Measured scan of single mutants.
Amino acid sequence: EEWMVEKALMVRTGLGARQIESYRQGAWIEGVHFKRVSPSGESTLRGTTWYNYPEINKFIR
């Protein structure tokens, strides 16, 4: 699984929702560690946020 939603990321990493938000707003790079995608497939600020687990795992190492 490369891309996953927040709940799956929480299960895989043990991070809480606030921790994920903090990383997203600070250290993680949009387009690398996470992306927002609307149902139409376009990038957007209001779409579902998807997280790239392999890239996040590399960051944590």
Rank of each mutant, 00 (worst) to 15 (best):
S40H: 12
R36D: 11
G26C: 13
G16W: 06
A17M: 10
R36H: 15
A17T: 08
K7L: 11
K58A: 10
Y53H: 04
W3R: 00
N52A: 03
E1M: 08
R36M: 14
I20T: 02
G41T: 09
H33E: 02
W28D: 00
E2P: 06
G16C: 13
K35H: 04
P54A: 10
T44K: 09
Y23D: 02
K7I: 09
G16V: 10
L15P: 00
L45K: 08
R24T: 12
Q19V: 06
T13Y: 03
F34Q: 01
E42D: 14
N52S: 05
R18Q: 14
F34C: 02
G41N: 10
F34H: 03
L9F: 04
Y51F: 06
Y53I: 05
I56K: 00
E30R: 04
R46C: 11
A27I: 09
Q25A: 10
Y51W: 02
S22R: 12
R61G: 08
S43P: 12
P54M: 08
Q19N: 04
I20M: 04
G26R: 08
V11S: 11
R18I: 11
G26Y: 13
Q19Y: 04
I60D: 03
N52V: 01
M10I: 10
V37E: 11
G16E: 13
A27G: 09
Y53E: 04
T49C: 10
Q19S: 05
A8L: 12
R61N: 14
Y51I: 01
I20W: 02
M10C: 06
V11Q: 13
E2T: 10
H33C: 02
P54R: 08
R18A: 15
E2L: 08
E2K: 07
R61F: 09
E42K: 05
M10W: 04
G41Y: 07
A17S: 12
V37L: 09
W3C: 02
G14I: 02
R61D: 09
Y53F: 11
E1F: 08
Y51R: 00
V5C: 10
V5H: 11
R18Y: 11
E30H: 05
Y53M: 05
K58H: 08
A8H: 11
T13K: 01
E42C: 08
V32N: 03
S38M: 11
E55Q: 07
M10P: 02
V32P: 01
A17I: 12
F59A: 04
V11Y: 11
I56D: 01
E30Q: 06
E42F: 07
V5F: 07
Q25D: 11
N57A: 15
K7H: 13
G31Q: 04
T49K: 03
E2N: 09
K58C: 06
P54I: 13
E1C: 10
F59I: 05
R46K: 13
V32Y: 05
Y23R: 02
S22C: 15
Y23A: 04
R18L: 12
F59Q: 04
T48E: 15
S43L: 10
G47I: 13
G14S: 05
L45S: 13
P54K: 09
V5P: 12
E30G: 03
P54H: 11
R24A: 06
W3T: 00
I29L: 07
W50H: 06
G14Y: 03
N52D: 02
T49S: 04
G47Q: 11
K58T: 07
M10K: 06
R36P: 05
G16R: 10
E6A: 09
P54V: 14
G14E: 04
G26I: 08
L9I: 07
N57F: 13
T44P: 12
I29R: 06
E55W: 03
M10E: 05
L15F: 05
Q19A: 08
Q25P: 02
P39D: 13
V11R: 12
W3S: 00
Q25S: 09
W3Y: 02
E55C: 04
R61P: 04
L45G: 14
Q25T: 11
T48F: 07
K35V: 12
F34T: 02
G16F: 07
I60V: 06
E42L: 08
N57E: 15
F59D: 03
W28K: 00
T44C: 08
N57M: 15
I29T: 10
G47E: 15
I56F: 01
E21R: 11
T44N: 12
G31C: 06
E2Q: 09
A17N: 06
K35N: 04
A8W: 11
Q25H: 10
S40I: 11
E42M: 09
R36T: 15
G16A: 12
R18W: 13
N52L: 03
G16K: 13
Y51V: 00
A27Q: 11
T49F: 15
V11H: 12
R18P: 09
Y51E: 00
V5W: 06
V32C: 04
K7G: 12
Q19W: 04
K35M: 10
W3P: 00
K35L: 07
R61W: 09
R36C: 15
Y53D: 01
R61L: 15
Y23I: 02
S40R: 06
M4K: 01
V32W: 05
Q25E: 14
G47R: 07
E6M: 14
M4P: 01
G16D: 15
E1I: 08
L9C: 03
R12S: 07
L45M: 11
V37G: 09
W28N: 00
G14A: 04
T49A: 05
E42Q: 10
G41M: 08
K58M: 07
Y53Q: 03
E21W: 10
H33V: 02
L15C: 04
G14F: 03
R24D: 01
E21T: 06
K58G: 05
P54G: 07
P39N: 10
Q25C: 08
L45N: 13
M4D: 02
V37N: 07
T44A: 12
G26H: 14
G47V: 14
K35A: 06
L9Q: 01
L9M: 04
K35W: 05
E1D: 12
E6R: 09
G14C: 06
I60Q: 04
V32E: 03
V11W: 10
G47T: 13
T49Q: 04
E30C: 04
Y53W: 11
Y53R: 02
I20V: 06
V32L: 10
E21Y: 07
Q25R: 13
R12P: 02
E55M: 08
W50S: 03
A27V: 11
P39G: 13
P54F: 12
T48P: 07
K7A: 15
T44G: 14
S43D: 13
G14H: 05
A8T: 13
I60H: 03
K58W: 06
R61Q: 15
V37T: 10
N52W: 03
E1W: 09
R61C: 11
S22K: 13
R36S: 14
P39H: 11
F59Y: 07
S43K: 05
S43R: 03
S40C: 10
V5T: 15
M4W: 03
F59C: 04
R18V: 11
S43C: 08
T48H: 07
A17C: 08
T13D: 01
R12T: 06
G41P: 10
V5S: 15
L45W: 07
M10V: 06
R24F: 05
E55L: 07
E30T: 03
E1V: 09
G47M: 12
M10F: 04
K35Q: 06
H33N: 00
G26M: 10
Q19P: 02
W50Y: 14
Y51P: 00
G14T: 03
P39A: 12
A8N: 09
W50L: 15
I20L: 06
V32A: 03
T44Y: 09
E42A: 09
K35I: 12
G47P: 13
R24M: 15
A17P: 11
L15M: 07
E42I: 07
F34D: 00
I20K: 00
I29A: 06
G31I: 03
E30V: 05
E55D: 03
W28G: 00
L45Q: 13
L45V: 12
W50T: 04
I60A: 03
K7M: 09
K7S: 15
V5Y: 06
K35G: 03
A8R: 08
T48S: 07
Y53V: 06
S22Q: 13
W50I: 13
T44V: 09
E6N: 03
Y23E: 02
W28P: 00
H33L: 02
L15A: 01
W28C: 01
H33Y: 02
N57T: 13
F34K: 00
W28E: 00
F59V: 04
E21C: 08
R18D: 15
G41K: 08
N57S: 13
M10L: 05
Y53P: 01
L9V: 04
W50C: 09
N52K: 02
R24W: 03
T13H: 02
M4A: 02
S38I: 12
L15T: 01
E1T: 08
N57G: 06
